[in-house]
C-alpha cells in the first residue's frame, strides 16, 4: 500500500512537471503578446503624428488651387474635420490595444511562479505545526521519507496543475476563435498602419526634397547652410522606409504562435520569430521618429 502511494505521488509530480513546459510556453506567448501591444501602441502614436504632418503638407500644396477666401476657409475647416475624424478612430484603436495589453499582462501573471514558493513554504509550515500536535504525526513517513519532506514537491505539483487547468479551461474553443480572430484582424490593421506611415512619411520627404533640396539648388544664389547634410538625410531616409513591409509580419507570427500553442499538444510555438517581427515595428517607429520635421 505504501509503495503504491509513493508511486502515485511520483507519477503526479512527473505528470505536472510535463505541464510546466506548456505553462512556460504560455508565459513566453503572453510576454510576446504584451511586447507586441506595446510596440503597436507606439506605432499608432507615430502614425497619428505623421498623418498630421502629411495632411498639413498636402494642404499647403493644394492651397494654390483654392482661389477665393471662402474656398480656403471651407477647405481648412473640412480638412481639420477629416483629420480629427481619422485621429479619433486611431484613438479608439489605442484603447483597444490597451485592453489587449491588459489581457496579455493578466495571462502572464497566471503563468508566473511568484506565489509558488510562498505557498509551498506556507504548506510546509502548516504541516510542521500539525505535526507538533502529535509525535505520531511528526514521525509519519512514506517509504522512509518524512511527510514534511514531501509537502514542497507535492504543493508545487498541485499549483502547476492548478495553473494548467486554469489555462486549459480558459482557452475554450470559443475563446481560441476570439483571440485568433482578433490577431487576424491585427494583421490587416498592421498592414494598413505600416503602409500609411510609410506613404505619409514618403510624402513628407518628397515635399522636403523638392522645397529644401532641389528648389534651392535650381535657384540662383548660395545654397542654404546645411544643404549637403539635409540632402543626405532625406535621400538615405527614403531608402530606409522600404523596410516598413517587414513590420507587418508581427501580428501574423503572433497568431501562428498562438495557434501552435492552443491547438497542438507539443506547444511548439516559435516565439523568437514574434520578437524579431516586433523589433521590426519598433525599428519603423524609430526610423520615422528620427525623420520628424
Amino acid at each position: 500500500m505504501k509503495l503504491k502511494l509513493s508511486m502515485y505521488i511520483l507519477f503526479f509530480v512527473l505528470l505536472t512537471g510535463c505541464g510546466s513546459t506548456k505553462i512556460n510556453q504560455f508565459a513566453k506567448f503572453s510576454a510576446a503578446g504584451f511586447t507586441y501591444t506595446e510596440a503597436l501602441d507606439e506605432l499608432v502614436d507615430e502614425v497619428a503624428d505623421t498623418a498630421i504632418d502629411a495632411d498639413t503638407i498636402s494642404l499647403v500644396k493644394a492651397r494654390k488651387g483654392l482661389k477665393t477666401q471662402k474656398e480656403r476657409g471651407d477647405e481648412i475647416i473640412a480638412s481639420t474635420k477629416r483629420l480629427k475624424n481619422q485621429l479619433n478612430v486611431l484613438g479608439d484603436l489605442k484603447r483597444h490595444v490597451f485592453l489587449l495589453k491588459k489581457y496579455f499582462l493578466t495571462l502572464g501573471r497566471l503563468t508566473e511562479s511568484e506565489f509558488d514558493e510562498a505557498i509551498a513554504n506556507n504548506a510546509s509550515a502548516l504541516v510542521t505545526e500539525i505535526q507538533n500536535f502529535s509525535p505520531k504525526l511528526r514521525d509519519a513517513d512514506i517509504n522512509g521519507t518524512n511527510i514534511n519532506q514531501l509537502v514542497n514537491p507535492l504543493t508545487n505539483a498541485a499549483i502547476r496543475k492548478f495553473r494548467l487547468d486554469a489555462l486549459n479551461e480558459h482557452f475554450t474553443e470559443e475563446r481560441v476563435k476570439t483571440i485568433g480572430l482578433a490577431l487576424e484582424t491585427h494583421e490587416a490593421l498592421l498592414t494598413l498602419l505600416a503602409e500609411k506611415i510609410r506613404d505619409d512619411q514618403e510624402d513628407i520627404l518628397a515635399f522636403k526634397e523638392t522645397e529644401e533640396i532641389d528648389r534651392p539648388f535650381r535657384n540662383k544664389g548660395d545654397l542654404p547652410k546645411k544643404w549637403m547634410e539635409n540632402r543626405k538625410a532625406v535621400l538615405s531616409n527614403r531608402i530606409s522606409l522600404a523596410s516598413a513591409d517587414n513590420a507587418v509580419e508581427a501580428a501574423s507570427s503572433l497568431k501562428k504562435a498562438f495557434l501552435a500553442l492552443v491547438t497542438t499538444n507539443s506547444g511548439e510555438a516559435n516565439i523568437d520569430d514574434v520578437f524579431a517581427d516586433i523589433n521590426e515595428i519598433l525599428d519603423l517607429v524609430d526610423l520615422v521618429k528620427s525623420e520628424e520635421l
Binding site: 485592453l99 489581457y103 493578466t106 495571462l107 480558459h170 475563446r175 483571440i179
Partner: peptide, 10 residues
C-alpha cells in the same frame, strides 16, 4: 470576450 477572459484569468 477579451474582457471576460481577462476577468476569468484574474
Amino acid at each position: 470576450d477579451i474582457v471576460a477572459g481577462e476577468n476569468e484569468l484574474k
